[in-house]
């Protein structure tokens, strides 16, 4: 009885274009971020002759890969108005579990990889359950706790010792190239394209936006909000573990302090990419631009031999500016109403 209830064949009358301003603001912002990236590249090219070389660009790509994969989970968490502060520690613990599986338990490479990904997913699910079942007030708390717990376990399991020398299969994603293109870069491309379609073209993906936009409205619309949140944090744990696998391959070792502070870069990338801390707004396509912006910034500062202390400062400043811009955009959207 849905559509025939009402009778009218009129066209939609346009109510003033008040909606335009907000959409324009979004578009302008996205364009601005992309332009910033290009501008940054141009500046780096001018300042360092080494920047625009194939070697260096591929280096940036493979360095960005780990951060890019971590940022997928972070993006989803932030999209639901949450956050996942545990990604760096989950990365380390999952990779350590893989090292132990391969080195101590004598499991084959594929089984070890499964241990890695399974550990990450499990830790992520625990994050989700802390939020949905234990009803901790905000994922900031639960994932902060997980950050410390996972790091503690990672240090404990091998008494803080690293594990190295992995079979080729485990190193493949992090260490190999197809032609000049790193496999990790191709993996990132596949993950982002897949995630883009998941978020825009499946009902589960759309429901993630709905939960982030208005939890209560989503619940009353029949969306299983808790399942969505559990899924989001599980994916975040899984992507952190996958990033751990890539990192382990790249350095051919796992170590308990791997991934330290990775959550910071991921948060910065996601926020620069235009996702809102208030939830419900953002695009995975822009997240990769945020990741690249930070990777280029770090790479450029390295090429120019800038003190790493300043790099740390610069990333912090970038986060503050990005969040300030976010608040500004939210105000613009509200005032247009």
């Amino acid at each position: 009885m849905s559509n025939d209830v009402l009778t009218n064949n009129g066209k939609l009358p346009a109510e003033k274009a008040v909606g335009k301003s907000a959409a324009m603001t979004e578009k302008l912002y996205q364009l601005g971020v992309l332009l910033s990236l290009l501008l940054l590249c141009a500046v780096m090219t001018a300042l360092s002759p080494r920047f625009l070389t194939m070697d260096n660009l591929m280096n940036v790509a493979s360095q960005a890969a780990v951060s890019a994969i971590v940022s997928i989970g972070m993006f989803l968490a932030i999209l639901t108005a949450g956050i996942d502060l545990s990604v760096g520690s989950v990365l380390a613990l999952s990779a350590m579990m893989m090292g132990i599986a391969s080195d101590r338990w004598g499991l084959g490479p594929y089984a070890s990889i499964l241990v890695c990904l399974g550990s990450g997913a499990l830790l992520g699910l625990v994050n989700g359950l802390l939020l949905t079942k234990l009803r901790l007030p905000h994922p900031f708390i639960s994932t902060l706790g997980m950050q410390k717990m996972a790091r503690g376990i990672a240090l404990f399991v091998t008494a803080a010792a690293p594990i190295s020398m992995f079979p080729d299969e485990i190193q493949y994603l992090g260490n190999n190239s197809i032609g000049q293109v790193p496999v990790s870069f191709i993996l990132v491309a596949i993950l982002y394209v897949g995630m883009y379609f998941f978020l825009t073209r499946t009902s589960t993906g759309r429901y993630i936006y709905a939960v982030g936009g208005n939890k209560e409205a989503a619940r009353l619309s029949g969306i299983k909000v808790n399942s969505i949140l559990n899924l989001v944090y599980t994916i975040s744990g899984l992507t952190a573990a996958l990033a751990g696998l890539v990192l382990a391959g790249r350095v051919n070792a796992v170590y308990p302090l791997a991934g330290l502070d990775y959550e910071t870069d991921a948060i910065a990338a996601v926020i620069i990419g235009g996702a809102s801390f208030f939830g419900g707004v953002g695009s995975i396509a822009n997240t990769i631009i945020g990741v690249l912006l930070i990777a280029v910034l770090r790479n450029g500062l390295n090429l120019l031999n800038v003190d790493s202390a300043f790099q740390t400062f610069a990333i912090g400043a970038v986060i503050v500016v990005a969040v300030a811009v976010d608040v500004l955009r939210q105000n613009v959207m509200k005032s247009g109403r």
């Binding site: 939609l12 346009a14 109510e15």
Partner: peptide, 21 residues
């Protein structure tokens, strides 16, 4: 679009943010 037209919803389009209505 169809159901909104039937209800004579005044909007500039289906992409318009609901908060602006």
């Amino acid at each position: 679009r169809k159901v909104c037209a039937e209800m004579r919803l005044k909007t500039s389009g289906m992409d318009m943010l609901v908060g602006k209505l």
